[in-house]
């Protein structure tokens, strides 16, 4: 067994990740509580009633949601400005997809995780998974989703926030809410997988741990992020 650890995340990345995670969960839960309409209610009336009960009133709930959202966006903005180069590198990394490798990875890994290797073999596929970089294709797609959804959520959120302050037309707020809901919904769909993979799946336990320690075992790196591992190894 190789117990050698490889540095993967610095402190800043770890903090922003967990800040992001907390905000995202909090905003999703409170945001869901802001929908209260018997014709829409995604999970039933009990949730908005519960949330409004916890926060005392619907107005407090919306205010908390707004100000946490604004705070989240502001912190991110500062983070990006302060770590501009790293942020750019991150964006470049997550938005660079290699169609062949990443598509195969997506298909095979999904089957492997849900149905297992045997099923894959039965389907006539090898269990060979294409090698991945710093992020695997799944992580990249989820990252893309969160970056795009996050941006749209911030923009639509701000539109709704300023609607009653400066906007003379009601239409932007109406569409913003529709889009805000759509984006939050899609992100939540991705988030469920992300949370499972990170926190529950045994497979990715080292990655989960690395989000606290900043490092991953060499083995893990080689198997899961082979391209990145090579890159790190080859670095002088």
């Amino acid at each position: 067994m190789n117990n050698k650890m490889i540095h993967r995340h610095d402190k800043g990345a770890i903090y922003i990740h967990w800040f992001n995670a907390l905000c995202w969960i909090f905003l999703t839960l409170t945001g869901l509580g802001l929908i209260s309409n018997e014709h829409i209610n995604p999970v039933g009336a009990w949730w908005p009633d519960l949330m409004r009960g916890i926060f005392g009133s619907a107005e407090t709930l919306i205010n908390v949601h707004i100000y946490v959202g604004l705070f989240w966006a502001a912190v991110f903005l500062i983070y990006i400005l302060v770590r501009f180069r790293d942020s750019l590198a991150f964006l470049k990394e997550v938005f660079t997809l290699s169609p062949a490798r990443d598509a195969v990875w997506m298909v095979k890994r999904n089957i492997q995780l849900t149905l297992g290797n045997r099923a894959m073999k039965k389907m006539g596929m090898t269990t060979e998974i294409p090698p991945q970089g710093f992020y695997n294709a799944g992580q990249k797609i989820f990252a893309q989703l969160t970056v795009i959804a996050g941006l749209i959520l911030v923009v639509t959120g701000i539109i709704m926030f300023i609607s009653t302050i400066i906007l003379d037309s009601p239409t932007p707020a109406a569409w913003s809410r529709t889009i805000h809901y759509l984006m939050a919904g899609l992100a939540l769909a991705g988030l469920l997988v992300h949370i499972y993979m990170a926190a529950i799946s045994r497979d990715e336990r080292p990655a989960f741990k690395s989000m606290f320690s900043g490092a991953v075992p060499e083995d893990y790196a080689r198997h899961h992020h082979e391209l990145w591992y090579q890159e790190v190894k080859n670095k002088p």
Binding site: H39, I40, P42, N110, L113, T114, L115, G116, T171, A174, W175, R177, T178, Y181, L182, A184, G185, L186, L188, A189, G190, L192, V193, Y196, I200, S201
Partner: peptide
């Protein structure tokens, strides 16, 4: 915007979250 929300976005979100939830459940069960 409201018709889009009730007629399209709301079902879509429910389906997306539902599918994702199913996938997670499948992985978990496995």
């Amino acid at each position: 915007a409201y018709r889009a929300m009730t007629g399209f976005v709301n079902p879509l979100v429910k389906i997306a979250v539902g599918l994702s939830g199913l996938g997670v459940a499948a992985m978990f069960l496995k």
